[in-house]
Design a protein around this nucleic acid. Structure first.
Lengths: 264, 264
DNA sequence: ACCATCGGTGATAATAATGAACCGATAGAT
DNA sequence: ATCTATCGGTTCATTATTATCACCGATGGT
């Protein structure tokens, strides 16, 4: 069904940072012929997956997704579970909590919960997080099989800050560390002065499906806060994974067990 | 692009009331060959638009929509605007407020806001409202062009309650009344003992794109409350339509002007 | 032991998608 | 004022894709 794949490729050109795209540019981006691109756009428009800006003639994502997303959510809730967990996390840690899911081989930010204070890390819903530069990405990779790891690391390792690991072995160290600790921590590798701490979420097949993370101004991270964040993340990750019918792999259970020890 | 249309037809088989469907049944529902159905499902699965229940082998909607819905929402907000309006409505009227959008030629419930009281009308997000049996549907049709009206009334007019209008001329009267009043009111035609009151929302082309409604236990509807509901709905409909870049048609402006007269 | 149905597959026939050339319109450069 | 390049959009012969049917093993009720 290559036609379906092409339609999806088209849809995936749109992002937070490029919400409206003209016909010719879209054809260039996808590598499709202009005529073919147009045919896809018209077909998708008929189902409201694409809209056209009447003024600029540029295309953008439509409303069609909303209904399907609502049907999915009302029968197999995920966002509501994540949001509840994020709210608990942002209250408990007084820092920004966010959740991402692996969609289309990218870690897409699905929810954010901000603490009730002035100075806090910021992050947008819809943003796609680079694997190599974020704690969320490393936590995800650390508990993925080697093959899956390799398949996600095809993008070039862009440097977002001076602290972004751009060499493959630097990243490997990060991942190894995360696998060892049961969480990933990234100091200003995505945003300067912001430290991310993240844990994976698992699906029914014990493979990571996303991650749960806390982003905090680096200056505020005392040892006590660090430990609290990790414990809260472990607790919520366990709860969310269970609530969505996921299966925690053995390689990760040692950490959640460790948590039970602390609680006792 | 008939292949795209077929893929969409497949996706649209899933609903709140039928969230998981097996291969053979899906083939029967769509009229596609089983082999073709499977190919579509696999293609859609590769993009996470479809998931398979590992136990039952049945298929369900996937996570793929979430990312695209978030990108759309974060660049062209609609749900957040609707939810704000719904919350104001449910507080002001102390009744259940809900919003629907026309997606895939059906009125799909996108948001609901309940008042803080025990006895209230209920409604689920993701539910598709029948045009003929709901105030939302009639308000929508009343301000649609005759051609569009006809295109939406292709379904059989199911009887949901003893009060559901099932004859075409009964429905025409309802619609005519709504066009005259500037709002639609349905007494127990969808749920017994529940009265719905609805107004249309307009898009950039002055065509209805959805509706805003209040559902209340019929017994509570005093004349004073009725009037308050209509005024609140007009006010919010105007505000929402403007906020989303919509254009109120002349045929409807008389009502919102009337409102301004009341406010003064 | 039987029949019906399930999910799933593979080879050929029928159909649908492709893409180069072309249109009129618009905008910046000469 | 003219030339050139790009835009969004369309056409139709060519080509690649998708549809269909028969079939598989497995499951479950009779």
């Amino acid at each position: 069904m290559q036609t379906v794949d092409k339609a999806m490729k088209l849809l995936n050109q749109f992002s937070r940072h490029k919400p409206e795209i003209g016909l010719s540019e879209l054809a260039r981006m996808t590598g499709f012929d202009k005529a073919a691109t147009r045919r896809f756009l018209v077909a998708l428009q008929n189902h409201q997956f694409i809209e056209q800006n009447p003024d600029t003639k540029a295309y953008r994502l439509g409303l069609g997704f909303i209904h399907l997303a609502k049907v999915r959510e009302s029968t197999f809730p995920l966002e509501s579970i994540l949001h509840a967990a994020l709210d608990r996390l942002s209250v408990a840690t007084a820092e920004t909590a966010h959740a991402s899911l692996l969609i289309n081989d990218k870690l897409s930010t699905i929810g954010v919960s901000f603490p009730d204070r002035g100075n806090r890390a910021h992050l947008d819903v819809g943003e796609q997080l680079p694997f190599h530069a974020t704690a969320s990405g490393c936590a995800f990779l650390a508990f993925s099989s080697a093959e899956r790891q390799a398949s996600f690391l095809t993008d070039v390792m862009d440097s977002h800050t001076p602290n972004t690991p751009t060499r493959a072995d630097d990243l490997d160290n990060f991942i190894e560390e995360a696998r060892h600790n049961g969480y990933a921590r990234a100091h200003g590798s995505y945003c300067t002065e912001v430290t991310g701490t993240a844990v994976p979420l698992f699906g029914a097949d014990s493979q990571p499906i996303g991650s749960l993370a806390i982003a905090a101004p680096s200056s505020r991270l005392t040892d006590a806060l660090k430990q609290q964040i990790v414990e809260q993340l472990w607790a919520e990750s366990t709860q969310v994974t269970r609530a969505i019918g996921g299966q925690i792999p053995e390689s990760y259970q040692t950490f959640t067990n460790q948590l039970r020890g602390i609680a006792a």
